[in-house]
Every structure is written in C-alpha cells, then in structure tokens.
Design a binder for these strands. Structure first.
Lengths: 352, 352
DNA sequence: AGCGCAGGTTACAACGTTGAACCGCGGGCC
DNA sequence: GGCCCGCGGTTCAACGTTGTAACCTGCGCT
C-alpha cells in the first residue's frame, strides 16, 4: 500500500465510492466497464476517481485474478549486446500488449537458470521467457510443466515447451557461402565448441561444413578454432593465436559478432586489411558492428520476429493455462545476411 | 493463481496445514520463523511444505504487506550500451538485496518518462529508479511525492528526490586536460546541446571550457559541434562534416562513447590515424570501446557505484516510507579516466 | 488446591479487488 | 392487474497471506 509522505494511504475503491455516493462495487463496475451502469453514474464515478486520484491496487487485482500482467525474461547478461537488444525488443513488444517485463540475469550458468525457473520471486510473473546457455534436456523436463514458459534458443527438450530459435545452420551456411562466393577458400571458423553435438555452436558448425561441402571443399580442422565463451576478448585472443601461428587463411566466420569484433581488432592490430587480406563475417547483427571500420558483415537472425513471436507465444500459453490443450511449438524466423564492408561491400575509404 | 496442467491449483498454506495436522496460521508462523513454534511442529510443517511443494503466493503476500520486493527501472532504451550495462549492474545489485527489477523503456521521451512515474502498471513496484532524458523540474515536482523515487542523472529538481549522478564537469575537465597534456591544442567537442544551460551536455561543456582555461587556451566556437542525440550514426556524420569542412584540429572529446566510436569510424574512413593525427576521448566506458582498434580512451563514470548507491538509496526510501523523515540526497561517485590507445597508450600494432 | 503465567497454537480480521448471486423497481406482455 | 423480465445497482464471498489478540494447556508457585 502506497503511503504518501503526508501519511495518507492511497485511495481505494471505497474512497471513490464515498465521494461518488455509490457502493464501491459500482465503482469497480465502472472501471471494468461492465454494461450495467447508467451513463449518469458512470460520469459521476469517473469524476470521483479523478478527484481523489484513484489508482487501482495491482497487488489486490493480481491476487483476485491470478494474473499480474508481468512476464519474466531471464537472459545471461544485459551487458552482452545481443541480449540487451533482445530485451529491448521484448520489452517494447510486451508493452504493446500491456505486459510489463521483469528481467533476471543468469550469467548463463545452469544453476541460476534453474533457479530462474523455480524462483519464487518470479511467482508474481504470469510466465517466463528463458534464454538458457547451460541447461540440458533433463533440467528442463521436471520444471516444464510448472508455469507458462517459452524458451529462446534451440530446442533442448521435446516436451511441452515452446521454443523460439534461429535458423542457425542455414544462416551459418549462407554466411560461409557468402565468403566462398567472394573467392575465399580458407575460411577460419571461430567459436566451435568441443564435444558438443547439439546446441548453437554445433548447428552453426554444421552450416559451415555444409557450405564448404556445397563448394566441394574439405573441412580443414586447422581452421576450426574452439572458443567456449563468445566474447570480444576471447575472439581477439583466439584470432591472435591463429595469426601468430602463421595459419594461412583469407576469411573468418565468427560464430557471433562479439567474436568477430574481437577478431577484427586482432587482424588490424597485425596490419592485415579487412576485407582485402581477410574477409570477415559475424552473427547476430549487434549494433556495434554497424559503425566499426570496416563495418561488419553479419547475420541478422530475425531478432525482432523472435521477440514478437516469443511474447505472443507466452501470452497464448498464459491464456491457455486453464485448458492446457496447446501443443509444444518450435519456430525459427527468417534470417537475413547483412553484407557490409568487412566482406567488401563498398569500402568507402576516401583519402586512404 | 498458478494452475498446473493437470488442473490442480497451486498448494496454499491451508493445504500444507492439512498435511501437517496444524492450523494454517502455524504454517505461516513457521515460514516466517516466528519464535513461538515448537521444534517438533516446525519439523513436521517443513516436511509437509516439502511434500506438497508449497510456494508462497507473492500476490497475496504483497497485498497483505504492501510490499512486492520489485523495483522499477526506467531507462531510455536497453539497446544503448550504457543503459544496458547500467541495467546489468542494477539487476545484479538488486538481486543481492533480494529485490527483483522490472525494466521499462521510455525512449528518452518526456511523455513516456512521465508515464513511467505515474503508470499504474508500475504500482506493483515498491519504488522507481528513473534515468530521464527529457524531464524538467516542473515535470518532476508534482509526482515526486508519490512513491519512492531515485533519479539517475543530474539534479533537475531541488525537491524531495534523491539523485545519483556523475561528476560530469570534473570528468570532462579531466578528459580534456588529458588531451591538452598530450600537447594537443585544437580539441573538437562533439555533442554540445544548443540552448541548454543545465543538463549533462552543459555540465560536460563547462568541464571542457574549464580545462582549456586552465591551459590558458581560448574556446574556439568552430570546434564546438552541437549534436542533440548522442548515437554512433550522428557521431560519425558530425565528425564527417567537420573533417570535410577542413577544420584544423588534433584531438576530439566526444560527450559519450557512442559519439566517439562514430567519430572514430569517420576519422579512419578518411585515412586519419588515431591517435597520431587525431587523439580521441569518449565518456561512459562502454564495453565496445575496449576492443576497437585503437581502443578508446574514455571516462569511467563510476557505473558500479552509481548502481549500488541508487539501489541502496531506493531501498532506504522504501523502508523510510512510513516515517518520511529522510531528506533528499545527491551523490556523485568518483570517476576514472581510462587511458587507452586512442590517446596513445601503448599502440600495440605489431607488423603495421 | 488454586492461581497466574508463559509457551504454543489458533481464530479472526484485514489488505483491495472482482465474480456471482441477489434485490428493487419500472415497463411490457398476457 | 398480475407476472415476468431487464436494468441498475447492491451485498456477499473469495483470492492467500500476515498481525493481533485470544485461546488452551500444563506447569510452577503460593
């Protein structure tokens, strides 16, 4: 209950009713525009609402209706640009649908992702959008049934859980194909995950292999660079090691933009020209890649659609909850290869 | 009320009580660990809690206590790296204090910032952290009294509102002084706001002027470039115009990192070497500036402290609400000039 | 033996809201 | 003229929790 500095507690339906001279339930009826209200009383009540500055108490409404209008969004961390932009979209779209978003950070750690699923602090949300990095099938299974849930990422679990994912393989294939179409033949792959046969890294790796196969090229294991955590620092370091080892290559496909931007720095630091000496493609279309020099060619994974679909699906789950006759769904929106300067789109250097 | 797919509704205190063979209030007493509970019943109750899988209903608790444990955070947009990193810190610190964060985006528009202050959707938060761009004194005044509020940004309003801000002027002065100490004499200022005498832009401008004055240099209006919206694109465009106009200069102080990174691109695009030809300093210490080439010298405004102080202050406001005897506070944590390659810190180009 | 007292547990009320059931009243229909 | 019905509104109960106060039991004290 909000208490004003003067010590008055926030006005309730009863206070409005008193001013309007009707029962408090009539005020409720007006506000929920039930039909059975005479225009005259409606006006009278609305005036009273205005006068006392009434605001509905959402906690009470929430208790009564079993709905809060709040959804949870659990991401690894907002300081990763991709997730920040995703959260931006999710919040924006949720607002359009009169939902509000409670953001939780998991650090990508399995333990904390599990906690996000179970956390009682989240029990005042109607449902959860979860972008997990560490979870596995088994983790999701026991909790899946609990509350409305939509997972952002590749399907971990064939159970009753909606997934909104990306066309990882097709997009990685297109990105690699783009490099090959430029005549590049030795394409470094940054970000492979050792001993992972499902998951984002594996899918993108499969796309890379497929594109090479399409071009009749073998996979050179010497060009496949494993990096567990996809951040800029590690991208720069890995690229640096590759260069210092004297590996021959003419292109880089980084599994995300952060790796790509780190790699870009390492390339430039060593005096290599991008795209002349090495062409570079990333993945995610993070804003940072648009104003680097050269700007970064990347895959736009359909972030806007992902956010829209995820919120919509979650809402459907929430609305469906009493019935529960909605099957699990998996959607992967269209992606788009955004060609910029790092693969030779109009390098606009002027006086250089 | 959470309904499981099987149609069972979530267990309540009553369900636990029935299993444990005590009254539901005793269960409540156990869970809130009131002293007056025999160890034997405590154990019995906890076992029952476990057995039925009880989770407290936060909506009910919230209604009863008038507290939700949720705080609101309203920022312009998360896709701006500075705010994403700020949100990251706020969520992290809030979690430490058992608070959870509801994030709202205002787009930096006055209208929507006002709405964030008043929005009933936020009435289930205990208080609000607001990072406004468009608000003015008059806007804040009437609403300030409503609910616990901490404003992130320079003090707009001398009323009963806490502010956590930055040492804009001192930091800008230090940044500019740093450039002057390198021997630069013609320092372009990117991001001035026309006709603004208070506000972030004005304060940073004042710091810039002060540093010049310290060095006995005049302010050259031809070097002061107004940019209303501080994003990369506009930074790049403005820098481009300055360069194309043939303005003589040997350094740039951008009012934030986004402007700086945009400017960096324009400089490089035109074949100018940073820092050799032009030294460059930004403001905010956004992650992106760490792995550009050259990396970006910038002001770290004490983001971590800002987040910590803001959350703590808000909590104090919330706790103080019944009494209301807390005066308004203004805090500006220490900043730090982070010297990187764009002003000549160990340019590590190797083969170049 | 009776009384008070404290420890342990319980009943009751309340937080503010909404859905269901109910009531009085006037008008239309038979 | 009596009955039914719909309109406009009301009363009642409930959502699940916690603070207050009352309750009961057994024990120690006088």
């Amino acid at each position: 209950m909000a208490i004003t500095p003067e010590g008055r507690s926030a006005p309730t339906l009863r206070d409005v009713a008193e001013v309007a001279g009707v029962s408090f339930k009539t005020v409720s009826n007006v506000l929920n525009d039930h039909p059975q209200v005479r225009e005259a009383t409606r006006v009278k009540v609305l005036a009273a609402v205005e006068q006392v500055g009434y605001r509905p108490n959402l906690a009470a409404r929430n208790l009564r209706l079993g709905r809060s209008g709040v959804i949870g969004l659990a991401v690894p961390e907002l300081s990763q640009a991709f997730f920040a932009q995703l959260a931006d979209e999710v919040i924006r779209i949720a607002a359009e649908q009169d939902l509000v978003v409670l953001v939780e950070q998991t650090g990508g750690e399995r333990e904390r992702e599990l906690e996000a699923l179970r956390n009682p602090r989240l029990s005042l949300t109607d449902g959860l959008l979860l972008a997990p990095l560490g979870l596995t099938h088994e983790d999701l299974a026991p909790d899946a049934a609990g509350r409305p849930l939509v997972v952002l990422g590749e399907p971990l679990f064939p159970g009753p859980v909606d997934h909104v994912t990306m066309q990882h393989e097709a997009a990685a294939r297109a990105a690699t194909a783009h490099l090959l179409a430029l005549g590049r033949r030795r394409v470094v792959l940054l970000g492979a995950h050792a001993a992972e046969d499902t998951g984002v890294a594996a899918l993108r790796y499969a796309g890379y292999r497929a594109a090479l196969a399409d071009a009749g090229l073998p996979v050179d294991d010497g060009l496949v660079v494993p990096i567990e955590t996809w951040d800029r620092q590690r991208g720069a370091e890995a690229m640096g090691r590759v260069l210092d080892a004297g590996v021959r290559m003419d292109a880089v496909f980084a599994m995300n933009d952060d790796l790509a931007l780190g790699a870009l720095r390492s390339l430039q630091e060593r005096g290599l020209a991008v795209p002349r000496d090495v062409a570079l493609v990333g993945f995610d279309d993070v804003a940072d890649g648009r104003y680097t020099f050269p700007s970064l060619t990347t895959v736009e994974p359909g972030r806007h659609d992902i956010a829209r679909i995820a919120v919509t699906m979650l809402r459907e789950r929430i609305d469906d909850r009493p019935r529960g006759d909605l099957g699990p769904r998996v959607v992967a929106p269209d992606f788009r290869l955004v060609v910029r300067e790092s693969t030779g789109a109009e390098v606009r250097a002027r006086r250089a």
